[in-house]
């Protein structure tokens, strides 16, 4: 699938804050777009609006697959996420969490596939329940979930945050592979290295 995302006249207001005043643009399929801006400029909120997780106060988003308009529900089946506010079940293991969320997204992985993914993100072995994980380990589990869900459009919010050097290399490889597979990537970040991967940049002020 090649999904283009168009956003028209997007406004978002909170009780004491007005974030955008009519953002309009297009994110073509297969392109890596970076959303940059100062802290509090609404990068994460804009990413969630584009993903359909939250609604804009005004304006609308259109998802087009070739010439067919996708509903929000249809689009969500093609969207994968890696955001800081996503968490896992503390009392469950990495494998249990990974199995649960991938199955909920419609893909059921075998034991060996789950293990392969955990090895890939360096979380294999007896690492126990997620409650014992460091923030970096949880970030790696989010990466595993994103890879496992095999979505065409990726929404990444500060993907390298809390990761060590090996983790950052993992993100770099992941983005490189995603681009070679013609995935659409939306990346909210202020990390200059991550910005360097982008074809296009949306600057929020």
């Amino acid at each position: 699938m090649n999904i283009d995302i168009a956003f028209t006249n997007i406004h978002k207001t909170f009780p004491s804050l007005s974030l955008y005043q009519g953002l309009t643009g297009k994110i073509p399929a297969g392109v890596c777009t970076c959303i940059v801006g100062e802290n509090g400029s609404g990068k994460s909120t804009f990413l969630k609006i584009l993903a359909g997780i939250i609604k804009p106060s005004a304006g609308f988003i259109t998802y087009m697959d070739a010439k067919r308009k996708l509903t929000m529900e249809d689009f969500r089946h093609h969207a994968g996420f890696l955001t800081p506010d996503m968490q896992f079940y503390d009392t469950m293991t990495a494998k249990e969490n990974l199995y649960f969320f991938t199955a909920m997204s419609g893909i059921e992985l075998s034991d060996s596939e789950l293990l392969e993914l955990l090895v890939h993100v360096q979380l294999a072995g007896d690492v126990g329940a997620v409650k014992n994980f460091s923030t970096g380990m949880k970030q790696r589990l989010k990466i595993a979930l994103l890879l496992a869900s095999k979505k065409e459009v990726w929404f990444l919010d500060e993907p390298s945050s809390n990761l060590d050097k090996a983790g950052r290399t993992l993100i770099k490889k992941m983005l490189f592979n995603a681009r070679s597979q013609n995935r659409t990537i939306l990346l909210a970040t202020n990390d200059l290295v991550e910005v360097g991967y982008a074809d296009d940049v949306i600057q929020l002020s």
Binding site: A51, I53, E73, R76, A79, G80, F81, T83, D85, M86, Q87, F88, Y89, D90, F101, T102, M104, S105, L145, S149
Partner: peptide
């Protein structure tokens, strides 16, 4: 409270 609702929202349909 635990933040898992965001992951559920991101990866699951509502009805299940």
């Amino acid at each position: 409270v635990s933040g898992t609702i965001q992951t559920l929202r991101a990866y699951s349909d509502a009805q299940p």
